[in-house]
Amino acid sequence: MWKFTVRRLLIMIPQIIALSIVIFVLAQMMPGDALSGMIDPNVDPERLEELREKHGWNDPWYVQYADWVGGLMQGDLGQSFRFKMDVTELIGQRIVNSFWLSLATLLFTYLIAIPLGIISGRYNDTLLDQTITGYTYIGFATPLFIFGLVMLWVFGFMLGWFPTSGSVTPGLEAGTFEYFVSKVNHLILPALSMALITTVSTVQYLRNEIIDTKQRDFILTARAKGASESRVYNRHILRNSLLPIAAFFGFEITSLIGGTIFIENIFGYPGMGQLFLESITMRDYTVVTAVTLLFGIASIVGALLSDIILSLVDPRIRIK
């Protein structure tokens, strides 16, 4: 088991190096830089050239890459031109918000997926199942950003049940109970909007797993033992069907990243996704590369988590 984990961790190293090179090269290829749009057009072009030289932007790419990686190693992600602060610090503020949003979304995703998937799989081809499957099809077909906007409009503006932007009501002091309540309150609507859409793949996956497991031979054995229908479901079918769902968990992280970019912008939620889009429009490339790198690493870690979870819960893999 530890061998497997160590090997899996070692594989991550070349993956991350490759990822960092790709991101860096892509960033280099992007047109313009932070100076081309931000500064007064009357400024002397030679002065700009001087600035570029000073920041090392005229060096060959590998020198710049080495500088960049060297910085990364020390936790220095560079300077944001727009916010005039360290990217590390900037991301540090945002990443906490994104973390809570992702966690809340995951929680909702499973709270919706598990009961719906179970009902749908157990009573497959009934009206109830068809209703749930119908929902999943609608979920697949609905673009997240439109659904998010509708939710915001209905529950945020029309009904006024939830705040419409930010991560906390300004003026509250951190650590107080009101602060906590306000945080949660800001989370619910964006997290629920995202979960309602992203959960549909998990619902279908679980449904198919249950239908598949239902027809396996060992279910006959369980029935032949005299196990009641509810025991057959709880002891045998569910346990075996939830296993691939657990393994799927790591990959959920990847799909969350895509989702947060939309959701955070729609709900004005100050997280990584919002930062990412803002930085692109502002050509704040140090921030863009840093955020992309973090997203990439999160995906790789997600895949790692999936593998490790699977090897923990499945005895057929655990032995190796």
């Binding site: 396996r216 031979d217 060992f218 006959l220 054995t221 369980a222 029935r223 032949a224 033992k225 005299g226 196990a227 009641s228 229908e229 045998h236 346990r239 075996n240 296993l243 819960v313 499945d314 005895p315 057929r316």
Partner: peptide, 27 residues
């Protein structure tokens, strides 16, 4: 069904063809 379940596995029982698929792989 509940009366049948009192009999199955107790007064009558069954052995299947393929013992690998007939056993729960995770138990």
């Amino acid at each position: 069904p509940s009366d049948l379940n009192k009999i199955r596995g107790k007064e009558m029982s069954m052995i299947f063809q393929d013992p690998l698929t007939s056993l729960n792989p995770l138990m």
